[in-house]
Design a protein around this nucleic acid. Structure first.
Lengths: 109, 109
DNA sequence: CTATTAGTTCTACATTGTAGAACTATGTCC
DNA sequence: GGACATAGTTCTACAATGTAGAACTAATAG
């Protein structure tokens, strides 16, 4: 299959990974999304989505060393692959094209 | 439930309805999406999504009179409700906020 | 060695995405 | 009016994504 389109939540997770690089892992991703959007996000949702994006090779993962803080165990850290960046671009592009010239009609100029 | 977030395909269908008003119906919506994006779309997918968006009161439907053309039977015509416009704005906004300042990092300046 | 904390995985289910076949209504032409 | 072509919609069935919450694991502090 060629580069897929991302689901809406996959899109947010992928963008969070891009923002947080090179420190994107489950907890920081959840924090980033809830901080920047009004959307409420559980950790379960984030982790499930990370696994799926990794399966599709849109993200690559590696395990970090423990942090030294109390409870600071090793993190599973994600980065975007080239295919991942392409998937973001394609998905966003489709929306952009459908929105083109529609701003006024929708009332949020 | 307050205004929901749209799935990625729901978003494209809702935007097509906005573009095509007041002539948005199954077939024209499919045409619009395939014309403006590289995404392939079956009619089954479009109709299923229209029903779901109508159930959620994001779209309102009415039946038109037959067109007079050969085979031109009555169409089920859709328009966006206020809640529908809000859902588009909310969904797009979440992505916009997550993308903010990220353009260069993703390589599609 | 017990408590506390950061982090991840598992389980289960709801919603959304998708394709293709079946069906229905309209007009044309003889 | 009845065969037929055509525009349009609905149905059926399943795959992928979204979601919540509980369970689990690994680390440090005391």
């Amino acid at each position: 299959m060629s580069t897929p389109y991302l689901g809406d939540f996959e899109m947010l997770v992928a963008l969070a990974v891009a923002r947080l690089a090179p420190d994107a892992y489950g907890v920081s991703i959840q924090r980033e999304i809830t901080a920047r959007t009004p959307r409420s996000v559980t950790l379960g949702a984030v982790y499930a989505t990370l696994v799926r994006l990794e399966d599709k090779r849109l993200l690559a993962a590696s395990d970090s060393a423990p942090t030294g803080e109390r409870g600071g165990r090793s993190r599973r850290v994600y980065t975007l692959t080239a295919a991942g960046k392409k998937a973001i671009a394609r998905s966003h592009d489709a929306v952009r094209r459908m929105m083109d010239g529609l701003e006024t009609a929708l009332g949020h100029a």
